[in-house]
Design a protein around this nucleic acid. Sequence first.
RNA 1: GGCCACGUGGCGGAGUGGUGACGCAGCGGUCUGCAAAACCGUUUACCCCGGUUCAAUUCCGGGCGUGGCCUCCA
Length: 444
Amino acid sequence: MDLRLYDTLTKQKQPFRPLDPSNVRMYVCGPTVYDYAHIGNARPAIVFDVLFRLLRHIYGAEHVTYVRNITDIDDKINARALELRGDRDLDVLEVVRELTERTYAVYQEDVAALGNLPPTFMPRATEHVPQMIAMIRSLIDAGLAYAAEGHVLFEVAKKADYGKLSRRPLDEMIAGARVDVAPYKRSAMDFVLWKPSDANTPGWDSPWGRGRPGWHLECSSMIEATMGETIDIHGGGIDLVFPHHENEIAQSEGAHHGHSLARFWMHNGFLNVEGEKMSKSIGNFVTIHELLADWPGDVLRFNMLRAHYRQPMDWTLAGMKESWDTLARWYDVAEPVTATRIGDGFLSALSDDLNTPQAIAELHKASPEELAGGLSLLGFNPISERLASKKSVDTVEISRAIEARNAARKAKDFKESDRIRDELLAQGIQLKDGPDGTTWEIKR
RNA sequence: GGCCACGUGGCGGAGUGGUGACGCAGCGGUCUGCAAAACCGUUUACCCCGGUUCAAUUCCGGGCGUGGCCUCCA
């Protein structure tokens, strides 16, 4: 089965051939740990987890390395820590540490609840500062970076193909630059590799004074540290194309004699909520954490996979409901299956640039064995209990009511039996009479 | 303003130069005391205007519309 993936750099679907089939390497930009992750953040986590699983299926589980980083050095974190401290007598650096630890822990729980496998490595920026300093040195040595006033900047003009990923000619970007140009910059587009820290900001000693790395640097550095100079796939949200990934390319290629950073660049589309862009001011900011409080993670995951990863997607409550219904029906069919298999149509859909909607369509036509196999490959464990509502219900009470109703039905006291049924329905319990007796489910 | 996506039936959502994916909803039926669930069957589509072609929803050009990036952002 030929895997084809869309590459942002060439803007084409290309056949995927790993550099080394015994070690397929993929890196995905992870979260900045300063606040709960929102459902937009869940999309790349889920999409690239599916890709991870597909690669493991094709090349063998032990032959795929998946790295997703944790950004725990960032000015948003620092700003939040200052807010949290307020005027209390606390060490801000300590608040930063607590904030990142706590947020990191919640993130790990949340993505696991979404059915994602743990990546092979989850490196953190704070653990790679020496490597970052070393990379800055290489860039200075290569004549691509310069130090000025405690900063080190990447000199974009020195890299002839800068802008190749986002397809932005350099002169146009400078003309359109809206930022105030810092006096120490040689050009408006030059970006920061290192910047000074004050007493209230985490900092590390370096040849350019106590400071901290610029955001883009950590990914370049951690890719090098965990997987080497050139990897097979680099993924992330489409909004990261510029400037983040563009700058990663500049840094990594600059520090590695022009050797390319990634052979495939993959970007997932944006997510809207009920037709609107998610934003705190509109009040439609939905976090993974709060969603998991009343929806099974499987439902959130399935909902995400109903749209192709590159398409913009609209997250809606109606869609969640539909996802739940489909999954519930499928789990009933797949749960008793013991010998699973992967259908050809299903696999070729997935192999066509991760066409999950097509793959799902194939599952609708599949045998129970293929359905179970497909669900499993997509990261679902078809165990009906996993779909149980997070709402607490008194199952003993429900069983008793069902017995009472069936007794009434037997006695042909339909007025009473319907009364019980309606009463349960009012509580959100939907009864289902089947040939093997009565079951129930939570009505959403 | 620059760059880039996208526009498919009531809804979600693939795909293709020529026999109207798939799911949900709707409708008809089986089942049921009646419903629900389940199962079987089934109606509805390709933004507008040109062009290429024997043939365009699919390719090309233009228009309109929506969204993204250009500043932190998945």
